Amino acid sequence: MLGAIYRHAGGRIRFGGNGGQLRKRTKFDPNDDTLNGEGFSTSLVRGLQILRAFGSGDPPLGNLDLMERTGLPKATVSRLTYTLSALGYLVYDEALRRYSLGTASVSLGYTALSSNPVVHVSRPLMHALARETGAAVALAGLEQNEMVYLSNCRSESLVTLRLNLGSRLPLWNSGMGLAFLVGLTDDERDELKRNFLPKNRVERAEMIKLLDDALAQYARLGYITAFGTWQRHIRAVGIPFRPRDGSPPVAFTCGGIAEIIDSKSARQKIGPALMDLREKLESLLEGRNNIAIGDEI
């Protein structure tokens, strides 16, 4: 079965089903109109750039904001925002002269989540783990050089992490990103390194060390821990998950502050619980077990 393709500004990364090999990247520039014959729709790429410019928690954006975030010319941005508004993917506020994501965009995202079996089937398991640990349990997938939350379950604790669907975490130094990276093949990781590691030598060396440490820990324990690697006060335990049907790889984390997650609880409770979650999820997805999955996304 064919694997998933992740696109980025320098080409495309293919994650093969069941850990297959990467396909060769095709270089492209979204602003280069000569690439229409290579299988890319430049207009579509530019339209998606506009939609992707809106981040979680952003205020409405004007055309100037979108120009700065996408690097597209003023005339192109104006034409695309007009078209996307007419189709319902953007909503234009005439008083503010700014745009927000429209219901068509929300509907598209919800459809993707609700039709994703990993997101749907894992919800009860994530809820149970959140209640058991008092921490936040999250599921995320790769989007360029960031991990994007696809699902998040929080405990009743007042000090749990308050990240939501669509929240973005860095790939190279967050617990979620490291958990994702350790589950890839060497070729897949090398492709991401070539395209997304920081150019600064010091930062690059720091990120590579974090990854090497995570790989060694995962080989030894079956999970990774990230204590203060992204935010000093945030601790996370994570595992990768690669569906056997060739769907995109993802990662799960159980995270919180130091008062909730310490080395002992990570080793004795959370790490083994995440591994158990993965085993149960694999069983459910392959039809080897039954579970009530009435939770809403």
Rank of each mutant, 00 (worst) to 15 (best):
Y99P: 03
S100A: 12
L101F: 03
L101W: 01
L101E: 04
G102F: 11
T103P: 08
T103W: 06
A104V: 04
V106E: 15
S107F: 13
S107D: 15
S107K: 13
L108H: 11
G109A: 06
G109E: 12
Y110N: 12
A112C: 07
A112G: 04
A112P: 00
A112L: 15
L113V: 03
S114R: 12
N116P: 04
N116R: 03
P117G: 05
P117T: 09
P117S: 13
V118L: 08
V119D: 11
V119L: 10
V119M: 09
S122A: 14
P124N: 11
L125G: 06
H127K: 15
A130Q: 06
A130S: 14
E132W: 01
E132L: 13
T133M: 10
G134N: 05
G134K: 10
A135E: 08
A136Q: 11
V137S: 00
L139P: 08
L139M: 15
L139K: 07
A140F: 10
L142M: 00
E143I: 10
Q144T: 09
M147A: 02
M147K: 01
M147Y: 02
Y149F: 15
Y149W: 06
Y149N: 09
S151C: 09
S151F: 02
S151Y: 00
N152Y: 01
C153D: 07
C153I: 00
C153A: 13
R154Y: 08
R154M: 09
R154G: 09
R154D: 04
E156Y: 09
S157V: 01
V159N: 14
R162K: 14
R162N: 09
L163F: 02
L163P: 00
N164R: 14
L165D: 06
G166E: 04
G166C: 07
L169N: 02
L169T: 06
P170I: 01
L171R: 04
L171A: 01
W172L: 03
W172S: 01
N173C: 15
N173E: 14
N173T: 05
N173P: 02
S174D: 06
S174N: 05
G175A: 11
M176E: 02
G177Y: 05
L178W: 06
L178E: 08
L178H: 03
A179P: 07
A179Q: 05
A179M: 07
A179K: 01
L181F: 11
V182Q: 05
V182W: 03
G183F: 05
T185R: 11
D186M: 05
D186K: 14
D187Q: 15
R189Y: 02
R189S: 11
R189D: 01
R189N: 04
D190S: 13
E191W: 00
E191F: 08
E191Q: 13
L192S: 08
L192Y: 01
K193D: 01
K193I: 12
R194C: 01
R194A: 12
N195F: 14
